[in-house]
Design a protein around this nucleic acid. Structure first.
Lengths: 122, 122
DNA sequence: TAGGATACTATCAAATATGTAAGTCATGGC
DNA sequence: GCCATGACTTACATATTTGATAGTATCCTA
């Protein structure tokens, strides 16, 4: 997610992300809280303070980092209103909305197969 | 992936994985080289040494770790033949095969939208 | 009896991700 | 002037992941 020192196998991973569309997509959604953020924004736009309230279990820093990453990747649109105190709204982009149905399938797959191997019910 | 110290927000993440099927699924496929491994095994079973050759850019250790994780999660089946020298074969499970079509959609989404925001072509 | 093959496992170090706490900045209201 | 607000930043500390390197076990063959 951040800049990488050019260690050979680390950069080989970057190469995979560039070469493979699937790896690319997964790399874009695998950050901490990203799926939760996407799901929170699925049907409404929210301002930063509202997201902050929802994600009170993590820090502003993390929230900002993940929102920035999502924005960079074109999944989230950030709108700044020139007011004081500032107001910033976040919403999903078109392309992010297109992921919805696919996420649904993944989720279904998860719920289907998870019940079979219930080893994580510790 | 490993045992977690019970820091409150780290464990909150575990909680998300337990509560949300989508987060669960993503957590199962987001390890380094996992998608590559799954794709390598998509149409054939391979022994450890063959995988090792394909993944010569990483270490045996990483390969073993990821294979173990995939096995734990029921995505890969490991078969040991009691021979000397040992022979171990890896193949996808039924449930892993079911992910194929979904991965295809994710991949298509990636290839479609990636060409639009071409900022990673550095 | 000293390799060789195969599939690991163990240790330690480096890199990356995440968390905590405190600070910034602009302005409107008191 | 002083404080509050909202949306961040910054600096430093931990946690987790990945890497580099070496070692283990078994039995067969030379």
């Amino acid at each position: 997610m951040a800049d990488r020192k050019k260690n050979s196998t680390y950069s080989r991973n970057e190469k995979c992300i560039i070469e493979c569309d699937l790896t690319y997509v997964v790399s874009k959604i695998e950050g901490r809280w990203k799926l939760q953020i996407l799901s929170m924004l699925e049907d409404k736009k929210l301002r930063f303070s509202e997201l902050k309230k929802e994600f009170s279990f993590t820090t502003e820093r993390m929230l900002t980092l993940q929102l920035r990453a999502l924005e960079q990747d074109g999944l989230v649109k950030r709108t700044v209103y020139a007011e004081v105190p500032p107001r910033v709204e976040y919403e999903l982009t078109e392309m992010a909305l297109e992921l919805g149905p696919i996420f649904k399938q993944l989720s279904d797959w998860g719920s289907k197969h998870r019940s079979l191997t219930k080893k994580e019910l510790v």
